[in-house]
Computed example of a mutant assay.
Amino acid sequence: MAIDDLLDEHEQSERVRTWLRNNAAGLIGGVALGLAAIYGWFWWKDQSTAKQMKASDEYQAVLDQIQAGKIKDAQVKAAGLKDTSFAALAALDLAKAQVDSGKRDDAIATLRAAKTDDSVVSAIVSQRLARLLIDAGKGEEALTLLNGGDDAASHEVRGDALFALGRKEQARDAYNKALGLLDVAAPQRRLLELKLSQAGGTPPKPESAS
């Protein structure tokens, strides 16, 4: 190996050592920040998992109280699920229990307070609340609540509200839209056809239904 090559390698080594000495603090700090970020992520994940598990246990407690017929106790426990993904589910179960025990207005209040970011669960809450509002003679409010819903269930409940308000032509239109979104073999189709007939309409023939 030539002397020049040895000098070049020695010079490069010195440069590396000098750079490390000058930047040691920054390197250590960067590694520390990286480790802190990794630790923080795992900590957050563990905390989130623990929170979900706790909420799941509390939701099960709500179901247990409902099954035991302790509606008021279930209501108290359901309130503790606020701001969790189980809050709306607990509200649906609680409202059903309230209706079954003859407390429709309590069920309406329960569903009014139910909040969720899940679009599917939110639609179910709106539909069930709308049905209760129709039963309570508040068809117009039910229609407002269902505004924007374009699935079969929403059209069906909208038809129920319109029929209750005496607007049979519009009810027929809503029922037809609901039927158009259902499979011919759908179990709820027969009931929808009966509702359409009651509103003065004619159910479409199976071959023409989509």
Rank of each mutant, 00 (worst) to 15 (best):
M1T: 13
D8L: 11
E11M: 12
S13L: 12
R17Q: 14
T18S: 10
W19F: 14
N22V: 10
I28P: 03
G30W: 02
G34Y: 02
G34T: 03
A36P: 05
A37F: 15
Y39F: 14
F42L: 11
W43K: 10
D46N: 13
S48K: 15
K54L: 12
E58S: 15
Q60R: 15
L63C: 08
Q65C: 06
K70H: 11
I71C: 01
K72Y: 10
K72R: 12
D73N: 15
V76L: 15
V76K: 13
G80F: 00
L81C: 03
K82E: 15
F86A: 01
A88G: 08
A90T: 05
A91W: 01
D93Q: 12
L94V: 00
A95T: 08
A97N: 00
A97L: 02
D100K: 13
D100I: 06
D100E: 13
A107D: 07
A113H: 06
K115N: 11
T116D: 04
T116I: 05
D118R: 07
A123S: 14
V125W: 03
V125Q: 01
L129W: 03
A130H: 03
R131H: 10
L133C: 05
I134P: 02
G137K: 07
E140A: 13
A142Y: 04
L146Y: 06
L146E: 02
N147G: 07
G149Q: 02
A153F: 05
R158K: 15
R158F: 07
D160E: 07
A161R: 07
F163G: 07
L165C: 08
R167E: 12
K168I: 05
Q170G: 15
A171G: 04
R172A: 04
A174W: 06
Y175R: 00
N176C: 01
A178M: 09
L179M: 11
V184H: 05
V184S: 14
P187K: 04
P187G: 05
R190S: 14
L191V: 13
E193N: 11
E193S: 11
L194K: 12
L194C: 04
K195E: 09
L196T: 04
L196K: 05
L196V: 06
Q198W: 14
Q198R: 12
A199L: 09
G200Y: 09
P203C: 02
P204W: 08
